[in-house]
Design a protein around this nucleic acid. Structure first.
Ligand SMILES: [Mn+2]
Ligand SMILES: [Mn+2]
Ligand SMILES: [Zn+2]
Ligand SMILES: [Zn+2]
Lengths: 143, 143
DNA sequence: CATCTAATTTGTAATGATTATCATCTAGGA
DNA sequence: TCCTAGATGATAATCATTACAAATTAGATG
C-alpha cells in the first residue's frame, strides 16, 4: 500500500471532508508537486490517472481544500488562481521572465504607517509580492 | 475655459499621446475621482458626458496611459484590474468588507531573506497588499 | 486651409477563467 | 443494506479581457 496515499486520506478525514477518489488524486498531485499549481495544471496532472475527471471537480475540490485550510489560494498579477500547499504565512517572489514562484518569509513585519484617512484600519493579514528576475533567467539572458 | 481640462490635455501631450475627446474624458475622470477605478467604473463615469464611448476605448486608453506612466495598473485579489493615478511606489490596504482601497508607504524596505533556491533573484519591485477591516466598516459592525 | 496617413474609435466576435445548474452517482452513517 | 446529504461531471452562463476590422479623425505637411 502507498504510504503517501494513506497520508492524503488522513488529511481529508482530519479536515472533515469526504474522501473521494478525485479528492485523493488532486490532493496527492498537490503534495507530490508541492508548488503553486493552477486548476489547469492540476487537471492536466491527474488526467493520466483520472481521464474522466471534470474540470468542475477540480474547481470544487480546491475550493473545499482551501476552505478547510489544507491549501491556500493565491492571486498573482492577472493570471489564474494558484493553489499553494504551503499554508504558513509567507510571501512570494515572481520572475517576470518565466513566471516561476518562490516562497520567502519575513520574521519581523514591516511597520506600516497609515495615512490619516486609514487610521484605525484593522490589519488582519498581508502579502508581499516581489517582482524580478530569477537566477535561471538571469543566467540565460546574461550569457 | 476649464483649467482642469487644459491640465489633462497637457498631460497627454507631454506623454506623447494623441489628444482625443475620449482620452481627455477618461483621464479627467481619473484625475477627478483620484481613486482606484476599474474599467467598468470609468466607463460608467464618463457615460453622462460620452454616451457613445465604447468599453473597448476605455480598455485601450488605460493601457496606453499605463504604458506612458500616467497611471498604474494594479491587481487586487481576483477582482478586475484597477487604475491608479498615484504612480509613486506605494502599497495598499484593502477592506475585506467593502473593498475600499487605501494607499500607504513604507520608508525602509523590509529585509527579504531568500531561500537557497532563490539566491541571486534580482529584485526589481515589490508590492504589499494588506487585508483587514476599514475604520468605517469597523464602526458599522462594532455598533 | 486642404490633403494625407497612421493612429484611434467602435461594435462585435473570440478567448480564458470561473461560477451556476442540475441530473446522476456515491460516501459514509444509521 | 439503505438512505440521504453531499459530490461529480457535462454543460451553460457569466465576467473580464483581448482580437479584429471597418469607419473615423488627430495632427503633420505643404
Ligand atoms: Mn507559496
Ligand atoms: Mn494606490
Ligand atoms: Zn525566470
Ligand atoms: Zn470597509
Amino acid at each position: 500500500m502507498d504510504p503517501g496515499k494513506l497520508n492524503v486520506v488522513a488529511m481529508l478525514k482530519q479536515a472533515g471532508l469526504r474522501v473521494t477518489p478525485q479528492r485523493e488524486a488532486i490532493l496527492q498531485y498537490l503534495v507530490d508537486t508541492g508548488g503553486h499549481a493552477t486548476v489547469e495544471e492540476i487537471y492536466q496532472g491527474v488526467q493520466p490517472c483520472f481521464p474522466h475527471m471534470s474540470v468542475s471537480t477540480v474547481y470544487n475540490t480546491v475550493k473545499h481544500l482551501a476552505q478547510v485550510g489544507l491549501i491556500k489560494e493565491i492571486h498573482v498579477g492577472d493570471g489564474p488562481s494558484r493553489f499553494d500547499m504551503n499554508v504558513r504565512p509567507h510571501h512570494h517572489l515572481i520572475c517576470r521572465k518565466c513566471g516561476i514562484l518562490f516562497d520567502f518569509y519575513i520574521d519581523e513585519p514591516p511597520r506600516f504607517h497609515l495615512p490619516p484617512e486609514a487610521q484605525g484600519f484593522q490589519i488582519e493579514d498581508y502579502h508581499v509580492e516581489v517582482q524580478g528576475i530569477c537566477p535561471a533567467c538571469r543566467a540565460a539572458s546574461g550569457e
